[in-house]
Amino acid sequence: MATKKKPSSDQGSSSSALDSSRWEVSCFWERRLQKELMSLMKEPPPGVTVDAEGAGQNLTQWIIQMDGAQGTLYEGEQFQLQFKFSPKYPFDSPEVTFIGPNIPVHPHVYSNGHICLSILTEDWSPALSVQSVCLSIVSMLSSCKEKKRPPDNSFYVKTCNKNPKKTKWWYHDDSV
């Protein structure tokens, strides 16, 4: 991108600094991630909390705590989502996986934490955000009728790449 970016020493970290020194921050994607982090901290979607400290230290990798929504099969459960961002963000989708001890048992979630969700690859759009991805995942979990792994789970987990974005997903279930 050929925007006029001035490399500078003061990378605004408070929100006011961000607002005033628009073109002072060196990277486009860092700036946008800062904004997203702020808004996620200020008004998080229900059941979603971001590890702001970790994300603040390393903007390229966020850990997000997600609670199973009330009245769904996942009520009372806690999950951890990991977001990894490339310098091409937001034009390139983030790499999103479930991590930690509790991977939700869901027909679109493999036991290694990979998620089969079209907005994470081919349907990604730069107007989406961490917040909207979290909401999509919460609603994907909430609409589940029966807790089970995907039918090809064991094969996929054995053969897949570590990065879920390298998988050629085949989206078939439009009901979610």
Partner: peptide, 14 residues
Amino acid sequence: EKDERMFECNICLD
């Protein structure tokens, strides 16, 4: 300033 949020770019959020 007041209208700033209304005229944010949908990509960079500025």
